[in-house]
């Protein structure tokens, strides 16, 4: 695969590492145990477009949110996770 890094341009996927779904939001410190469980362990795991974290470890070292169709690997967006 080739990932279009918003900072470095299109690069080969081996420059990146992967963390998975970017949608779950880290709960507040006082959130319930169930909320924390869901955040850390449960996944939608859709067969379709996923927003996911990629880390450009061998590039700009920025964490990115990439929208990718996990059936075809077609990438429709890639933005900085802090953007």
């Amino acid at each position: 695969m080739r990932i279009p890094c918003p900072h470095c341009g299109e690069r080969a996927s081996e420059e990146f590492s992967y963390l998975g779904a970017a949608d779950p939001v880290r709960p507040a410190a006082d959130a319930s145990a169930a909320e924390w469980h869901d955040y850390v362990y449960l996944r939608d795991n859709p067969a379709g477009v996923m927003r996911e974290f990629w880390h450009h470890v061998h590039g700009c070292r920025r964490w990115l949110v990439v929208a990718r169709d996990v059936r075809t690997h077609a990438i429709s967006a890639a933005v900085d996770a802090g953007a």
Binding site: R62, W63, G82
Partner: peptide, 17 residues
């Protein structure tokens, strides 16, 4: 070492930007 750096970058860039 590599994993901790990536972990801290995630903590900063994603969780505490």
């Amino acid at each position: 070492a590599p994993r901790v750096l990536a972990h801290m970058e995630f903590a900063h860039q994603v969780l505490r930007p």
